[in-house]
């Protein structure tokens, strides 16, 4: 499964979703993600910290779904991959800038940013 979800609590006591992403993301995977994060979904409105592995690819049909979902709460992504960063940057260009999304190179800085962000 390309997504692995864990519910955790931040150092400042804020509950957040820790999401691990890897592999090739298909339309079905995107729908699964959307189901969790759209209104009515289990993680809707929750802070999210995602780790996107090197080699993760967003399929053309999946990309459209990710663009539609948007961010209902602050979301920090940690990745060491230049390609993943480029892919997310590209997709972000089509989404409205809400200040709720940022990419980081390391987990501590991502978690610190997330912890300071109000929903």
């Amino acid at each position: 499964m390309p997504f692995r979800y864990e519910e955790r609590v931040s150092p400042k006591g804020r509950p957040y979703v820790r999401l691990h992403v890897s592999g090739e993301l298909s339309l079905a995977d995107a729908h699964e993600y959307a189901g969790h994060f759209r209104a009515g979904g289990r993680y809707h409105g929750m802070h999210t910290l995602s780790f996107v592995e090197k080699g993760t690819e967003y399929g053309p049909e999946a990309r459209k779904i990710f663009l539609e979902v948007g961010q209902s709460a602050p979301h920090a992504t940690v990745t060491s991959s230049a390609l993943v960063r480029a892919a997310i940057n590209l997709m972000s260009r089509f989404s409205p800038k809400t200040g709720r999304y940022r990419m980081f190179a390391t987990e501590p800085e991502a978690l610190a940013w997330l912890d300071d962000k109000e929903a």
Binding site: K54, A82, L83, R85, A86, N89, L90
Partner: peptide
Amino acid sequence: LVEEDDDEFLEVELG
């Protein structure tokens, strides 16, 4: 695409 080409042009290539 290669990870080593970590620059703005990579986004153009990916685009």
